[in-house]
Design a protein around this nucleic acid. Structure first.
Lengths: 305, 305
DNA sequence: ATGAAAGCGCTAACAA
DNA sequence: TTGTTAGCGCTTTCAT
């Protein structure tokens, strides 16, 4: 067939508004060219960049990504996967945190885990242990001895146990473990404020606090303001994630930067690998994080350490 | 067939791990039970709640929603719709802002517009005119006469022209039009800060500023802080949207609250209506907004109005 | 090189 | 009521 003919056909097709039916194609080929990304809370600004990263990587490979918001209901997370599995609408899953599926239930399904790790699955996660440790080391270097922890109220999430352990280990190294206090909170400004109020209640309160998340840190700012405590004069705070709002807090928040976009890209690439070779070995990647020092940390008041 | 038999079959199906293939079903029935929601910037925290609202409404009706991030590229927005149209993967579209498709190109496709309106399409939008007017009326009531506007750099977006007109009309009503100054900015803290610096540059600067968006307002806080201007002592600011971070700014931001979640719910419901009856009349709904007064607005300094 | 036909897994219409 | 069959729109294989 000549090039001219083919062009003519193409033009005619365009003129008639012909579009290949992707559903029919999927049925025939068994591939949907789409993946599902399940997150626990679309409302958390951490996920915007992550979704964008995953979306870009997917687009590059000719895939679409469908976002599922499990609204913090772990069962939902699984229900969705269950519903979509084998239905042919997606070719694989990107699962953010939540309890990982058991190996057998996931049999044969390409799945990559984000911010969790389990045997048999490919995964990407942040080096949260290191991040949290770096945060307390920073406070220790400034001279703080009473270091508190505003923790996420999600003891089952690996990423948060890692942060807890990072704090614990760094504190132990510094011989400061006994003076640590921790309060747990849901990840909202309001809940963070309340937990912050508890953490800062009495005079023996910490002079430095590391937070599992910048949202919690925002809540702590609220609590400190209410108690008339200046940051960083009376209280040093370090966050985690480096969300957009970290820079707009007063003072700007010292935090542990996590590259959410890269997390998304890497997760998709890992999934592409699995989809291409379902029998291959699972891979685990750990992504570095970095402390970025801004204005919310300083040495404690002379008499106050 | 007896109930017992049917149960037995069901049990057997479950045991064998049978799941109906949704793709085959879609091909047969011509319905994908999914809709596409296209937004210009997933990274903007406004969309989290909106997506959640749309997702909930969709789930209730047995639909899934696929999120598409057009990354502020209007052409992309259209490319996506184009790509998905007729492909059978989605049954309808929820389009956030961007230039609306022409009537003929959208022929027969169920589409609802969010934050835009055009003939022939169902749509939901905020009453942004009223919101912006309420914001300036609030400043006028406090005694401000030099009222500035930190505008979104998106002159083509209906929602922002509405805000501009709301400000304009309210200012005209108060006879304060001549003293108005406006600066445009991309919707990021960094860009907002720069535009804010321009707005506050010289001594004839506004004593009150309304912002098209809370992110812009955050940028303005940065600019004011840099210039040593106290909020609200030297500068009153009012935002728009009531994003989560509004409450964590210091001082907490007076802003125009928009219910993003409801926007999502309404948009989906409108779409469901269109999908059920494609020939029906298009409907336009306008959603009220409300000024919420917090700490960022106060009367101007005595000598300064 | 081109064309015909089978079939992916369902559902809906029809026959028995 | 129960069972059978055609066909959704593609891709792929096979025969011409």
């Amino acid at each position: 067939m000549s090039v001219a003919t083919s062009d003519a056909v193409r033009a005619a097709a365009a003129a008639l508004g012909y579009r290949p039916n992707a559903v029919a194609r999927s049925l025939k080929t068994g591939a949907a060219r789409a993946v599902c990304l399940a997150v626990p809370d679309v409302t958390n600004p951490f996920f915007g960049p992550m979704l964008r990263g995953a979306g870009r990587a997917a687009a590059r490979a000719g895939y679409a990504v469908a976002l599922v918001d499990s609204e913090n209901a772990d069962t939902w997370h699984h229900a969705t996967v269950q519903a979509l599995r084998g239905a042919g609408t997606v070719d694989g899953f990107l699962l953010f945190a939540g309890s990982p599926p058991t190996r057998e239930r996931a049999a044969g399904e390409p799945i990559v885990l984000i911010e969790t790790e389990t045997r048999g699955f490919s995964s990407v996660r942040l080096d949260s242990h290191r991040g949290a440790a770096a945060a307390v080391e920073h406070l220790v270097a400034l001279g703080h001895t009473r270091i508190g922890h505003l923790a996420a109220d999600a003891p089952a999430e690996q990423t948060f146990v890692l942060r807890g352990r990072g704090r614990h280990d760094a504190l132990a190294d510094a011989g400061l473990l006994s003076d640590a206090r921790v309060e747990a909170s849901a990840i909202t400004f309001a809940a963070g404020r309340e937990a912050g109020l508890r953490l800062l209640a009495d005079p023996g309160r910490p002079t430095g606090v590391i937070c599992d998340d910048d949202i919690l840190a925002g809540g702590l700012y609220l609590a400190a303001r209410e108690l008339g405590l200046g940051i960083p004069a009376d209280l040093s705070v370090v966050g985690f994630d480096d969300l957009a709002h970290a820079a707009v807090l007063a003072p700007p928040l010292t935090t542990v930067r996590a590259d959410a976009g890269l997390l998304g890209v890497t997760a998709f690439d890992l999934l592409a690998e699995r989809m291409a070779d379902p029998t291959g070995r699972a891979r685990r990647v750990v992504q570095p994080v970095a402390l970025v020092e801004r204005g919310s940390t300083a040495p404690p008041r002379p008499g106050d350490s």
